[in-house]
Amino acid sequence: MCEDKENKVDKAFESVTRRDFIKGVSGALASTAALGAAMTPALDMGKDLSWDEFYQQHYQELTVEQKEKIFKRIEQKVKTDYGVDNANVQDPLPQLGVEFAYALNLSKCIGCRGCEKACSKENNSDRASGMSNIRVLELDKGSINLEKSSQSYNPETVPQEGKYYMPIQCHQCQNAPCVKVCPVQATWQEKDGIVVVDYNWCIGCRYCEAACPYYARRFNFTTPEIPAEEINPDMGYLSNRPRPKGVVEKCTFCLHRTRNGKYPACLEACPTGSRKFGNILDPESEINYIIKNKRVFVLKEELNTQPRFYYFFD
């Protein structure tokens, strides 16, 4: 028995030739190197991602104390990344009895892109890619085929003869397809109707971007580049704080402004007064007057998204 065993062990060693040994070792080395290469992005991530950030809970599960700590951390990060001291991260909550709605007068809009630029500035969007949560579409008068619209029109002056302009942004749908498709529930609808994203929970799968029929969601392919003097220091956790690379962002009706009573930035930038905003539950509000008295429509009504963004004529 014992001899048998010894023979077996000898045989086992005999079978490993010098060639096989070198093959095995080099294979192991190659696979280690490949694993290392594959892990590089993960290792790089450590530069931007702290342990606190990595283990941060979903926004809706955070306590007030945890939030305070997170906001401090974000303010610190804004300071190191963008060189801005006065960043103030807030989290204004939905007001009771308030549901926001937006209306846009297509007869008045001249397509100047003032709203688009104001949005980019207010919301600390990436300047390198010229990101904005608003797109202004140029369409032929009498048509409403968005597929044939132009976003890159650049004539000497606007409005052009025979064209009309349709700014488009998040419609804050009551039946939002983007919320339904999110596999990790990183996006949801708040009590005042605003659809928000927890940028720390978003995994960047871009399902929501594909699901949105209004092209309202944008993906951060790079870490946003914003010059220090252009940073807007009034930040909301769910709205305009600088986003990390690889997450989706969207219009939040400037919730850091509107939940504090102010008008959104795009409305204040519009030179024609085409944009109207308010509380749809208030019967005295401007928005209520429009819905009662003007010819109002919603875009792609057949999809049953039930937007809170109305277009109207007069």
Binding site: I110, R113, E116, R127, A128, S129, G130, N154, P227
Partner: peptide, 22 residues
Amino acid sequence: FQPMKPFSPPRNRFGPIKKAVH
């Protein structure tokens, strides 16, 4: 309203993003 010059159009998403930002 008198016709006015529009702000610059958004940049093309395709191709590498230029680093000359501002």
